[in-house]
Amino acid sequence: MAEQENLLYRLMNSVIYVLDAPVTYVREKLVVPNQKKYPWYHQQYRRVPTIDECYMDDMVCYTEADCQFKRDKEVEDQILFILRSRYEQCAVYHGEDVHLCDPIRKTYDDAAVAWFIKYGEMGVGLNAKNAYMKQKHRMIWERRHGPVGTGMKQQPNNA
């Protein structure tokens, strides 16, 4: 009886080996050596200089900065989409107890405000240079009048 179990055991091992050996060989010799060595599942681009670091006549730098800007916008769009989806799923799950989702809603609102500050009301001319100018104008406004949305500071009368 022990010989039959031994024989059956050896037979199953040989069948498994015949099926597993080519798969293991292909994985170890072809797949693993050709894998990319970074742990991300998406392509990582190197960071390029931003638009404020480019010379005025360097069109290649302008183009790279604009492509980087558009990639960053797509990432931030997806972040907003995920945050909004999480809030909606929480609201559906909790039903009438939506107040349990307030931390998620606050996170989404903060991210939406930050997105709007950077990209909002840009219209068709959405590029790195226009976004940089928008940021510059906002900083000048805040220096003169205080944070946007708090109303204008009263100018002292020096007359």
Rank of each mutant, 00 (worst) to 15 (best):
Q4G: 00
E5I: 07
E5M: 08
E5S: 06
N6Y: 06
N6F: 01
L7D: 15
L7T: 10
L7H: 14
L8R: 05
L8N: 09
L8G: 04
L8C: 03
R10L: 11
R10H: 07
L11G: 02
L11C: 07
M12W: 12
M12K: 15
N13T: 09
N13W: 04
N13A: 04
S14K: 14
S14M: 10
S14R: 15
V15C: 00
I16W: 11
I16Y: 14
I16A: 11
Y17M: 02
Y17T: 13
Y17G: 03
Y17A: 05
V18I: 13
V18D: 13
V18C: 07
V18W: 10
L19S: 05
L19H: 09
D20H: 08
D20C: 08
D20L: 09
A21W: 13
A21S: 13
V23E: 00
V23Y: 01
T24Q: 03
T24W: 01
T24V: 07
Y25M: 03
Y25K: 04
V26N: 01
V26M: 10
V26P: 03
R27F: 00
R27K: 14
R27D: 01
K29N: 07
L30F: 09
L30I: 09
V31S: 03
V31K: 04
V31H: 01
V31T: 15
V32Q: 02
V32E: 15
V32C: 04
P33T: 02
N34I: 02
N34D: 14
Q35K: 14
Q35G: 06
K36P: 01
K36I: 05
Y38K: 11
Y38E: 15
P39R: 08
W40S: 12
W40H: 12
Y41L: 09
Y41K: 11
Y41E: 10
H42V: 08
H42M: 07
H42Y: 10
Q43R: 12
Q43N: 07
